[in-house]
């Protein structure tokens, strides 16, 4: 087996690279086929989809009819707005409360601080499915707080604390010099001033990572919203997609258009912020 030693720039290396490229392109095309199929069929009439789902273009030509009816019947604008506001408000509070708490835990040596932090980290292993039944029984049956966006936001904040505090804690311990804070205290900063003016701006890279992770999680979340939001006018995008699919499951053209519409915003954001998203996901996974 002496074939392997690569000579940089040699003929063999060029050939190997070409082979890799061909192989990867083939695999990537395979990976993308589902999206491609949804896209081409979203422009076709129902009858052509059933007859031949693999045909590229409908014999009667390109049509946006599916989109206009899916857009209307999914209540796209409202669902999009609900998703946006729930995601935005939840993430803002998660970032705020988690960074404050993590800073406190990282800089305080009292028993209460250590214990609280350990509890939060330990609780990260509890899967959502273990909590959902009592959660609904407390907030639904006891307090009657279902069918409110604010209840969902409230819970999102609670579920977001673990990972957020954990990641911030690690970064503050390793990346925020304590001498800076000491100088600020001597200059007479109050604790909040110290945190918001000096520490929080230094946490920017971690905040970016966290925003990526939490937006992906909350924007796509289905199970918790489906338990909390039972009214159509409160539906987020995944919920309205789900109901839409159930209602029109035989009307394939509309379904395809609805799926494309649901995916579209994420893909657009991905095209713009690809680098940040990928590095955020990697940083989050490696730290956690």
């Amino acid at each position: 087996m002496a074939k392997g030693r690569t000579v940089v720039g040699g003929r063999k290396a060029v050939f190997m690279n070409l082979m890799k490229l061909v192989l990867l392109t083939a695999v990537l095309i395979l990976y993308m086929i589902p999206f491609f199929l949804i896209l081409i069929n979203s422009f076709k009439r129902k009858i052509t989809i059933i007859k031949n789902p693999l045909m590229l273009v409908d014999p009667k030509g390109f049509s946006l009819d599916n989109y206009s009816s899916a857009f209307r019947e999914m209540n796209y604008v409202r669902a999009f707005g609900n998703s946006l506001i729930i995601t935005f408000v939840s993430v803002a509070f998660i970032v705020l409360f988690a960074s404050m708490a993590a800073y406190f835990f990282a800089r305080t040596k009292t028993f209460a601080a250590k214990f609280s932090f350990s509890l939060i980290v330990a609780a990260m292993v509890i899967p959502f499915q273990t909590i959902m039944i009592p959660l609904i029984s407390i907030y639904g049956n006891m307090f009657g707080m279902l069918n409110m966006k604010s209840t969902l936001v409230f819970m999102n904040i609670g579920f977001g604390m673990g990972l957020a505090i954990f990641i911030y804690y690690g970064f503050i311990r390793s990346g925020v010099p304590i001498s800076l804070e000491e100088a600020a205290i001597i200059d007479g900063c109050t604790p909040y001033q110290l945190f918001f003016k000096i520490v929080f701006p230094l946490l920017k890279p971690t905040t970016a990572t966290l925003i990526v992770l939490d937006v992906l999680w909350l924007w796509n979340d289905y199970l918790l919203p489906s338990l909390i939001l039972g009214k159509k006018k409160l539906y987020t995008l995944p919920l309205s997609t789900y109901t839409f699919y159930g209602t029109y499951s035989s009307d394939l053209g509309k379904i395809m258009a609805g799926l494309v519409l649901t995916i579209l915003p994420v893909i657009v954001i991905y095209l713009i912020l690809q680098k940040q998203i990928i590095s955020g996901v990697v940083a989050g996974a490696v730290k956690a």
Partner: peptide, 15 residues
């Protein structure tokens, strides 16, 4: 001041 809000949400929703 610092850990209060986080602990409140964490206890109310998880613990």
């Amino acid at each position: 001041m610092f850990a209060g809000p986080a602990m409140f949400f964490f206890f109310a929703v998880v613990i």
